[in-house]
């Protein structure tokens, strides 16, 4: 049995997904034995989301036992999460630059200069991402940085997705950046990045 998330609703379940009632909450589970990996869990959660189901998703990488999923309904403030995330999804937004051409550096100076250029690219990506999400005035996760990209998740009302997506594309066009810099937006996804299962006790400490 695979736990996919928690919901207040008991309808609109796609095929293969069933509900287990636990107090005010319904735990979404799948009995499909082929759901073994994070990728499979993600696909199952996306099909629930696309079916219009409003739910708090588990992190796909975490195969939560039904016992733990039940405990979370008592130990975690799911009500607060529900108020924050109900009827919302997330866009995953990344600003990327083309990777620097790989060349083996023989001397320390050119190695350091390569790293300097890399940091410069990271700064460009981070600045552009911060500028774009600041204009949106929507909840976002902390930015994540890799060698050639900066990314974060943006929480969006389901009925506002087109406007937000267009706004991001428009802002990216307005901003002056290096020519190889591009904005990548994927989604709408279930709001994985915003589900914080910190227990009430931990949160109080």
């Amino acid at each position: 049995m695979t736990v996919l998330g928690w919901t207040r609703h008991r309808t609109n379940l796609p095929s293969g997904v069933r509900s287990l009632h636990c107090g005010d909450w319904t735990i979404l589970v799948s009995d499909d034995p082929s759901i073994q990996t994070a990728r499979h869990r993600l696909a199952a959660q996306v099909s629930c989301f696309d079916a219009g189901l409003d739910f708090l998703p588990t992190a796909p990488a975490q195969n939560i036992a039904i016992y733990d999923a039940t405990s979370f309904t008592r130990t975690t403030d799911l009500d607060a999460l529900w108020r924050k995330l109900s009827d919302r999804g997330q866009f995953s937004v990344a600003v990327r630059m083309a990777a620097d051409q790989e060349h083996r550096t023989q001397d320390g100076r050119s190695w350091l200069k390569t790293r300097q250029a890399q940091r410069q690219r990271q700064r460009h990506c981070g600045t552009m991402l911060a500028d774009i999400v600041a204009h949106l005035k929507l909840p976002t996760t902390q930015p994540r940085h890799t060698e050639n990209s900066a990314s974060c998740d943006v929480l969006v009302q389901r009925d506002d997705t087109n406007r937000v997506h267009n706004a991001m594309q428009h802002l990216a066009r307005l901003m002056q950046g290096p020519p190889d810099m591009r904005l990548c937006v994927t989604g709408l996804w279930p709001p994985f990045g915003f589900v914080d299962l910190t227990s009430k006790t931990e949160a109080a400490e």
């Binding site: 696309d50 999804g89 389901r158 997705t161 087109n162 997506h165 990548c184 937006v185 994927t186 709408l188």
Partner: peptide
């Protein structure tokens, strides 16, 4: 609802 670029395997 829109899903943009989900076929981009690398991104997924």
């Amino acid at each position: 609802m829109t899903r943009i670029g989900t076929n981009d395997t690398a991104q997924v």
